[in-house]
């Protein structure tokens, strides 16, 4: 039992999380649970900046269950007053705040082995992975889809449209006339991403050659 010594001992919640991935062969993707998420952070530096809040909603079938929404706010050690005007979260606001470890614990319990969806997903996932790594844990194991990629595929492919254009959440929400009431709160943005996911996949599924698996991001992206 040599490997047992070599293996680093991880906390129980991580083992429970890993356990979800050992389930039997994946059945139909349509029946899977998807989790659309968004993080608000103190800034855009993966090493210095920290997560302020995580918001998420789950999608099963074509439905978003509001009762199954996820929303947490983290205690802050690092604080960048420059980003307050975007997310509106002050260092000691009245929202119930929890430690980074508790946040990650709750988040892992929530996502299980669901397929994660986010707009510009590699940023959010990388921020979460950084938090995991700080706690001595490896990266997330979940499959990840970027709604930007889905949206880009629904656009007409033509030379006179700039292919490198990066569509912001606002651009897409406007094109799809999705309400922007809760922009820049993690749960609000997560809901917008979820709606964009439902809408783009409905459009894309009309083509027989569509395979959602093709949109899974490569793990080296985060």
């Amino acid at each position: 039992m040599l490997w047992n010594f070599k293996k680093k001992k991880h906390p129980e919640y991580w083992e429970t999380y890993l356990h979800h991935f050992e389930k039997k062969e994946k059945t139909n993707l349509d029946a899977s649970r998807f989790v659309a998420l968004d993080t608000e952070t103190t800034g855009f530096d993966y090493y210095v900046d920290r997560i302020l809040s995580i918001g998420a909603v789950s999608i099963v079938g074509n439905e978003i269950t509001v009762a199954d929404a996820f929303e947490i706010y983290l205690e802050q050690s690092h604080f960048d007053p420059k980003s307050v005007h975007i997310h509106g979260i002050l260092q000691n606001s009245k929202k119930h705040q929890i430690s980074e470890e508790d946040a990650i614990k709750q988040f892992l319990t929530y996502i299980e082995d669901s397929i994660l969806i986010a707009h510009h997903a590699s940023f959010d996932i990388k921020m979460i992975n950084q938090a995991l790594n700080r706690m001595g844990l490896p990266n997330l194991k979940n499959k990840v889809i970027d709604t930007m990629d889905l949206y880009a595929s629904t656009r007409i492919k033509s030379n006179f449209i700039d292919k490198s254009v990066r569509y912001s959440l606002d651009d897409i929400a406007e094109a799809y006339t999705i309400n922007l009431m809760d922009r820049h709160t993690a749960p609000g943005d997560a809901l917008i991403a979820a709606l964009i996911f439902l809408k783009t996949t409905t459009i894309l599924k009309k083509s027989k050659s569509f395979k959602l698996e093709r949109y899974f991001l490569k793990s080296n992206r985060f």
């Binding site: 918001g55 509001v66 996820f70 929303e71 009431m181 749960p187 809901l191």
Partner: peptide, 10 residues
């Protein structure tokens, strides 16, 4: 847990 989405729906 706070549920911002439920608040907006309300």
């Amino acid at each position: 847990m706070k549920n911002t989405i439920a608040e907006r729906i309300a």
